[in-house]
């Protein structure tokens, strides 16, 4: 039997293909949150990662797949003691992330959409889209304890 210490040392890796189904999305969020907590990621880090995954997955369904119920979003993850890496892939045609208007400009503050990507960039250590823009790779590096 693997001890809990060894279990926490090993990377937790997984991959799921999701339909736009809240229960399925919640299930993967819980699985990832538990893997993070086992590796002593702080509650603020778990919050940040959970929010980023939520935003990335919903962007994949809504903007990538254009809400096509026949299309799926894939989530892959690898979580170890130092770093959590994620790939979110949709089945859409992709987009140009640089074309998304800055929602923090005064003239855009009252536009009700377009904040998901900026939240991901704010909360994650690194986030970038691979061409053609339907594959987001993002990672969170656990802060080193003083």
């Amino acid at each position: 039997m693997t001890s809990s210490h060894n279990l926490a040392d090993a990377a937790d890796e997984g991959s799921v293909r999701l339909r736009e189904d809240n229960a399925e999305i919640e299930q993967v969020q819980v699985r990832i949150a538990e893997a993070l907590e086992r590796r002593d990621y702080a509650p603020a880090a778990v919050f940040a990662i959970r929010l980023s995954i939520e935003e990335a997955v919903m962007n994949g369904f809504q903007h990538g797949n254009r809400a096509d119920p026949n299309k799926m979003v894939e989530v892959r993850w690898s979580i170890d003691q130092a770093r959590a890496n994620f790939h979110i892939l949709d089945e859409g045609e992709g987009f140009d992330p640089s074309a998304v208007p800055d929602p923090t400009l005064d003239e855009n503050l009252e536009i009700p959409s377009g904040r998901g990507l900026m939240l991901i960039r704010a909360y994650m250590t690194d986030a970038r889209y691979h061409d053609p823009g339907n594959h987001l790779e993002m990672s969170f590096r656990k802060p080193v304890a003083p």
Binding site: L51, M58, L109, P112, R115
Partner: peptide
């Protein structure tokens, strides 16, 4: 405990 950007969008709509 958690709030997404879609919820922010709803608040903006209501505020406007």
């Amino acid at each position: 405990e958690h709030l997404s950007s879609a919820a922010l969008g709803a608040l903006i709509t209501v505020n406007s």
